[in-house]
Design a protein around this nucleic acid. Structure first.
Length: 836
RNA sequence: GCCGGGGUGGCGAAAUCGGCAAACGCGACAGACUUAAAAUCUGUUGUCCGUAAGGACUUACGGGUUCGAUCCCCGUCCCCGGCACCA
């Protein structure tokens, strides 16, 4: 039976066999070195970078392949345009994700990761990516992380890495601290467990020093708007003022600080100040109380004896609460400290409260409350019956009415009231005027605050680069000398993290006991490893220099190839990898190691692929594994389908049913080239369509509009096919070049069959001729009162009068023109609109 | 609540500058080829009314500007993503 079928098909002419063609060309690309880049000699370098994957045990996900294919098409297109394109790929193989999976299946990551990388490599090669594998890298390679550690040392040298004890995010499941960026809605980015707060000593990077630059540069970066918006939100700049309130002293805390002489009685003037941050200094006259965060160190200094017990109880309660329930909006709580401060402009005493709606880790950890004009303060003041004063009024509002049930937060058109000499000023002017007044009187200054926090980079885990520091009783914290890098991660059989907040490496005495590099006395290695995002914050610098062991990146090569020409990746890294990379690059620039401060001048976020309208997830069981589709349809069809199912930057809906249309297109292309004739002349009309198609495919591919580029090629194929005669070579040959970025194997095969020795990717992009594109006769739309009533076939450059005459000659159009034509709108070559 | 992106046929989608809405593909229907099926090829396919010719309506909803609006403006609703007691 099987034989019969084989016999009957073998008598037919051989059809398009993707498996054979793809095998052939993947082998030939390796033989010919087609994808190797001449980095030193390139005349027009083009660095087409895609975010590298972490090699998960599940293998390559269709989402990875969607992103990589989009990048690959762009790279191949740029190559056809005459650039020397460098498209490297590597593996982000350190980190909690890899380690957690290793723990789950009980395999050591040192064994698991190479296996996964092997499998990824096979899958990626099978997908036909134009990757220069000579520059493959893995962050777990000591040759790589030697330089990750070097970067840490540079940060340390520059004072941008520091150790501090503070409140940090602790994931009880991953048993490590996390950066703020890795906490999504109070949950661990990796495992979804609710994050706890712990007080631990950790390594941080001073990314906040770069907040302004990170934010300002976004204005000129050519990035997807969504990515820039996410970074702006995350950095969160607020312009405002810091205002100092003097605490009114009482005997309650006399003796705990400097007491100025000469004062009599029980009150002494003491310099206890509360600094607050506000974006609304204009409302200072309406500040009727102050609030300190429960953790604020000043609380215990100022609290009165009568209130001390109550305040301490409140502070303990709030400390016991986890981050999430505290941050979730709920009923306001707080206690009075018994202390008062002076409002610097009114001179009036105002009470100082402690409440957990004020956060210690933003601004100064203290606020001036303006219940008339801030919703939270209003809610709090209403509950605790604190004074509410109106100091801003809109054009139609009575300055003397009580503020009412809600705070008045509107600022447009609003002017100050009840603010003495500042009355009548518009809000913006008042901000400036009051800030200036405060500065003059030493009670405040203009301040810019950022939401961004320093980047916590230490991890109490095993699978990462050890932080290259040695502690010595005499010398303190000593950096590992550069010539002793890398500090290799030792093989540890039991790498399980535990609850202690101490890294697994701290259990390996033979590893951490080392002499101090400074004095030679016994020292102890840092046993935390660094965040995986430090690995990925510089990998783009390493790729072009991955063959060098003496430097992290070669200066000449780096000057030639960086910044990255085009970067494509997912928006899930908008505030993680993309921001850390920018930070590290800025530091390297400031230290003179590179001559640019933005690593990716052009970044495009690709969309997400869903499966039949639903998000893909393991729990739903609807994850598309590329292998089976590539097996069934071929890599070229699969690539092209992925790009056809929706706009690349928006993603799309993966449906099995849609693939056949793309395959049909490639089948037709294959047959058309098989059947193409050399004799005779090409068809004029087909050539005209061809030139239009060349232009459109080039334009669309250049702006990542792959779905419409493919549609244009399909439409052209339909025109070729509609011709009764076999197509002429001149009609299909350029189409092979157009389709090459999308279906590279098929294009190579057809290109070879058309008699070319050199590969299609070195053939250049076909050119189009304006003269061919211009159609002599066009269909001009004719509207009557803006409604389409017909079309007229006219010459492209027809005059208004001639077009009008032609239109009125059509009975179908003329019947709508019953009265006098009042006006004629004429768009040459496009449209005629008659207004009656 | 603030910021960003969206909402168009049965489905995925297109319309790059305010100028013929629905390109391209899937699906569906009909036909050719076939003993039959698959594959392939051809045609039809936004909705409603109409036998037809033809007509009316249609880009989430309500207004506006314009000769003309999927596109610009105002208001409302919904979906996706980011931020969020951030002062």
């Amino acid at each position: 039976m099987t034989e019969q079928i084989q016999n009957s098909t073998s008598s037919e002419p051989a059809g398009y066999d993707p498996a054979a063609i793809e095998r052939k060309w993947q082998a030939r690309w390796v033989e010919r070195g087609t994808n190797d880049t001449d980095l030193a000699g390139a005349a027009r370098p083009f660095y087409a970078l895609m975010m590298f994957p972490y090699p998960s045990a599940e293998g390559l996900h269709v989402g990875n392949l969607f992103a990589f294919t989009g990048n690959d098409i762009y790279g191949r297109f740029q190559r056809l345009q005459g650039h020397t394109v460098f498209q490297p790929l590597g593996y982000d193989a350190f980190g909690i994700h890899s380690e957690n999976f290793a723990l789950k299946i009980g395999t050591h990551p040192a064994e698991l990761i190479p296996r996964n990388i092997e499998r990824f490599g096979q899958q990626l090669r099978r997908a036909g990516l134009m990757v220069d594998w000579k520059h493959e890298l893995s962050t777990t390679d000591p040759r790589y992380y030697k330089w990750t550690q070097w970067i840490f040392l540079k940060l340390l040298e520059r004072g941008l890495a520091y150790k501090k004890k503070g409140a940090v995010n602790w994931c009880p499941s991953c048993k490590t601290v996390l950066a703020n960026e890795q906490v999504i809605g109070g949950e661990c980015e990796r495992c979804g467990t609710q994050v706890e707060q712990r007080f631990l000593e950790q390594w941080f990077c001073r990314i906040t020093d770069y907040a302004g630059r990170l934010l300002d540069n976004l204005d000129w970066l050519d990035w997807s708007e969504s990515t820039k918006a996410a970074q702006r939100n995350w950095i969160g700049r607020s312009e405002g003022a810091e205002i100092t309130f003097q605490v009114i002293d009482r005997f309650a805390f006399a003796g705990s600080a400097t007491v100025s002489a000469g004062q009599s009685g029980e009150t002494t003037a003491r310099a206890v100040e509360v600094r607050v941050f506000t974006t609304r200094p204009d409302t200072l006259y309406g500040a009727t109380y102050l609030v300190l965060a429960p953790e604020h160190p000043l609380v215990s200094d100022i609290v009165s004896d009568e209130q001390r017990a109550e305040v301490e109880a409140y502070r303990e309660r709030s400390a016991a609460q986890d981050l999430v329930s505290r941050k979730v909006s709920k009923e306001k709580t707080g206690v009075f400290t018994g202390a008062y401060a002076t409002n610097p402009v009114t001179g009036r005493p105002i009470p100082i409260w402690v409440a957990d709606y004020v956060l210690m880790d933003y601004g100064t950890g203290a606020i001036m409350a303006v219940p008339g004009h801030d919703e939270r303060d209003h809610e709090f003041a209403t509950k605790f019956e604190l004074e509410i004063v109106r100091v801003v009024a809109g054009p139609d509002e009575d300055a003397h009415t009580p503020v009412g049930d809600d705070a008045h937060t509107a600022v447009t058109g609003a002017r100050l009231v009840n603010s003495e000499r500042f009355d009548g000023l518009a809000v913006d002017d008042a901000k400036r005027a009051i800030t200036a007044w405060l500065a003059e009187h030493g009670a405040g200054k203009a301040v810019t605050n950022y939401r961004l926090h320093d980047w916590c980079i230490s991890r109490q885990r095993y699978w990462g680069p050890p932080i290259p520091v040695i502690y010595c009783d005499d010398c303190g914290t000593v950096p590992v000398p550069e010539d002793q890098l890398p500090v290799e991660l030792p093989f540890v059989e039991d790498f399980k993290p535990d609850d202690t907040g101490i890294s697994p490496l701290a259990r390996v005495e033979s590893w951490y006991r080392v002499p101090c590099p400074a004095c030679g006395k016994e020292g102890r290695r840092e046993t935390d490893v660094s965040d995986t995002f430090l690995d990925s914050a510089w990998y783009f610098l390493r790729y072009p220099s991955s063959d060098r062991d003496d430097v992290p990146f070669d200066p000449a090569i780096t000057r030639k190839w960086l910044p990255v020409t085009s970067y494509i990746g997912g928006n899930e890294h908008a505030v993680l990898h993309l921001m850390y990379s920018r930070f590290v690059t800025m530091v390297l620039k400031d230290m003179g190691y590179v001559d640019f401060e933005e690593p990716f001048t052009r970044f495009r976020a690709h969309g997400l692929i869903v499966k039949e309208g639903a998000k893909m997830s393991k729990s739903r069981g609807n994850v598309v594994i590329p292998d089976q589709y590539i097996e069934e349809w071929g890599a070229d069809t699969f690539r092209t389908y992925l790009m056809f199912l929706g706009p690349f930057e928006e993603g799309g809906d993966f449906r099995d049913a849609g693939i056949s249309g793309v395959r049909r297109f490639l089948d037709r292309l294959y047959r058309a080239v098989q059947d193409a004739r050399r004799e005779g002349a090409p068809d004029e009309a087909v050539l005209r369509k061809l030139h239009q198609t060349i232009r459109k495919v080039g334009d669309d591919t250049g702006r990542l509009s792959y779905n419409t580029a493919i549609a244009a090629m399909m439409a052209y194929m339909n025109v070729v096919k509609a011709n009764d005669r076999a197509p002429h070579v001149a009609e299909v040959e350029p189409l092979v070049q157009l389709v090459a970025p999308f279906a590279p194997h098929l294009a190579e095969e057809l290109w070879e069959r058309l008699g070319h020795d050199r590969g299609v990717f070195d053939s250049g992009w076909p050119t189009w001729d304006e003269a061919f594109i211009a159609e002599d006769l066009i269909e001009m739309a004719v509207q009557v009162k803006g409604k389409l009533r017909g079309t007229i076939k006219v010459t492209k450059d027809i005059s208004q009068d001639a077009a009008l005459a032609a239109a009125l000659a059509e009975p179908g159009i003329a019947k709508f023109v019953d009265g006098e034509i009042r006006k004629v709108i004429f768009v040459p070559g496009r449209l005629l609109n008659l207004v009656v």
